[in-house]
Nucleic acid binder design. Structure first.
Lengths: 139, 139
DNA sequence: TTGGTTGCAAACAATTTGCATAAAT
DNA sequence: ATTTATGCAAATTGTTTGCAACCAA
């Protein structure tokens, strides 16, 4: 995955082992639809035998977020979770019973969001929309 | 506002001065569209001459949240902000530079959200939408 | 070489908790 | 009288930072 080298360089970050490991682990998790906290990441790295400090995990995550390589979510109070920045924006529907996550995108909603922001004199930097849902009848 | 006494009792909470003050202050702020952090609330209470401990503010906020009297938001990492549980649902726009929160509602978006959930065989239990925005030049 | 990077420990900020006192029912 | 609440300080939790050693460019 030499492409990751370029991503780091383009972000003005030196290509180091810790950064590559973190990027790769986060990438794998994201493909599984997992959102990892700094601590999650730190533990998984340790389990894989990597000797990366927790402070480094935090620093690197912040740098990746700034470089827009990853996205930070504050779903729960108290800590953040991260996922790779998706190529294409999408919103989430979460089944409250199974925790299954369904991704979707609706152009009309996107359009109106921008319209609303504009009406208030703002431009949208980014946005989040989470629908907490339950299956109709048969659960 | 004797109605607040009942709200507290129905939540199984004793009617105490700190709780009434917090409820009232949060209610006023919410009417102004302000979302307060625990620290904000604590400071405002002190400014009003109230002698309520920060720990009490935190404890009471958690209890109110559990009782669904108020809503907790995690717009920014690191701390929560609260508002009275709104009678009518609305979404939020957060100014990324000032952390100011603007409330809004768009019926068309609401309609489409339900439509989308339905198309997937779900019904919406609850949802959140946060637009992170920045003022268009002339700020 | 040179400046960015890392690990560790100490520092921080937000929030929680133990406990003795005080107030509500 | 009994139960729950409060204030304070100490403790926790998640995250950040100072610094000396270290490594990529």
């Amino acid at each position: 995955m030499a492409s990751q080298n370029r991503e780091l360089k383009e972000a003005g970050l030196k290509v180091t082992a810790p950064r590559l490991k973190i990027l790769s682990m986060l990438s794998d998790a994201s493909e599984q639809g997992d959102h990892l906290s700094a601590e999650d990441l730190y533990q998984r790295l340790r389990d894989t035998g990597e000797d990366i400090g927790l402070a480094t995990v935090y620093r690197v995550l912040t740098q990746f977020e700034t470089a827009e390589l990853i996205i930070r979510h504050n779903f729960e109070a108290g800590y953040s979770v991260f996922e790779m920045a998706p190529d294409h924006h999408h919103d989430h529907m979460v089944d409250v019973d199974t925790n299954e996550v369904i991704e979707f995108i609706d152009e009309e909603i996107e359009r109106r969001q921008h319209l609303i922001a504009e009406q208030h004199g703002y431009e949208i930097i980014d946005h989040t929309m989470v629908l907490r849902v339950r299956k109709k009848d048969g659960a």
